[in-house]
Design a protein around this nucleic acid. Sequence first.
DNA 1: AACCAATAATTGGTTAACCAAAAATATAAA
DNA 2: TTTATATTTTTGGTTAACCAATTATTGGTT
Lengths: 240, 240
Amino acid sequence: MLENFSEINVETPVDKIIRQIKGLITSGQLEPGDKLPSERQLAERLGIGRSYVRDAIRKLEFYGILKTMPQSGTIISGLGITALEGLISDVLAIEETDFASLVETRVFLEIHSASLAAQRRTADDLVALKKALLSYEEKLTKENFAVEEDLLFHLKIAEASKNKVLKSLMLIITPDILNSYSNLKVCNTDTVKKTIDEHRNILDFITSQDPIGVERAMKSHLNDVLNYSRNRGLKNSTEK
Amino acid sequence: MLENFSEINVETPVDKIIRQIKGLITSGQLEPGDKLPSERQLAERLGIGRSYVRDAIRKLEFYGILKTMPQSGTIISGLGITALEGLISDVLAIEETDFASLVETRVFLEIHSASLAAQRRTADDLVALKKALLSYEEKLTKENFAVEEDLLFHLKIAEASKNKVLKSLMLIITPDILNSYSNLKVCNTDTVKKTIDEHRNILDFITSQDPIGVERAMKSHLNDVLNYSRNRGLKNSTEK
DNA sequence: AACCAATAATTGGTTAACCAAAAATATAAA
DNA sequence: TTTATATTTTTGGTTAACCAATTATTGGTT
């Protein structure tokens, strides 16, 4: 019975098109700098709606592989064929993020971000940080959980780092973090007090412009959060 | 004469819709967990095509603010109003990346990535790295420039780090890096030899699983690249 | 009153059609 | 023959229409 099931095709239409485009480049029918066939032609040739073609082109554009000019056409980036093939393969191979990678990267970004914030924060940044910290504290003491306010505080730190790319990257991984932590919202009173202290500590170091200190503080803070989440995770799984 | 020109509206239709959605949340007409009006209704209400609405929804979905279920509807994430407003504002405020931020972030990502790669690389990773390094060397000795092959080597390092998020982030900033460095492709023979040595050095440290060593090597390598690009940039600007 | 099945309305997914701008081509004048 | 201009074609941008799956509603049965 089971063998009657056929493997489900997880490849989205968009990925199919991207794969085809890669094939065209590999086979030499398309070379760097060339103009891509029109969206209509591609759609018809691949027997698929133009929306999908447009989505695929937009995705490749996001990764710098294509460049589309309104009312004119879409051209292939002037990179070498090797690079193009490698990049497209990577784009196709983008995998679902796992929790471990996520946390690991977050810790790294946060520490870096905090260090830069300590060096570059302006007076305005301090005001914003204080405000974020305050709403975090209020929410936490009132409802014993405040994951969102927590992350907003951290985003403000990234903003104070004056590094736009860093902030964007933080923003990109934020939703994944929220999803991952969504199952451990409630803290007991001890934990509440501790995390508030840690946040205040971080803000103090940023205020006094002490990069080394804030790095250490952020490191230990995230470590605590991580340990706590591990315990909660265990507890939850046994409860269930 | 000049005053007859009116300011060009740089706000894309998608951003307009996002702003409206934010307004609905702020005014309390939409609350976390609610179901968003249907795409059709939103499109008609805003007097705009449904494609734009879909694009906006997809963007907000990418940042974890909305969640859309096929044939069922789109719901607002269960976050607090404060978090939602903050996140949406951040999404709207995403700025163009500047060169300084880009390089700064790249350096940190690369160093971290190399360190992890040294700790976790498998035999297969080494094979892939050697292959990438080889094609880099071939291209460089032949044509005196190989920005693309260079980046592919670095991407392989990220892959060896076994951190999917890290690799994705590298992939995201890669196109920007390519654009930034596109004007300094040609190296003289001395530089060629030096960068090849540096790459080999990095690979050696990864092979011998020496995280500290590879961090130092990568740091100095990127530093060289950066200094060189600065000089070239100066030279180019004077030429022009 | 509660439950269930059939049907109608609504949803996001997908495709096709329309639009204005740009490019290519043909045509006419020099 | 060359150049300038008018016209047709092609382009991506945008909107409307269609589809299958889902949900809500309704009517009847227990």
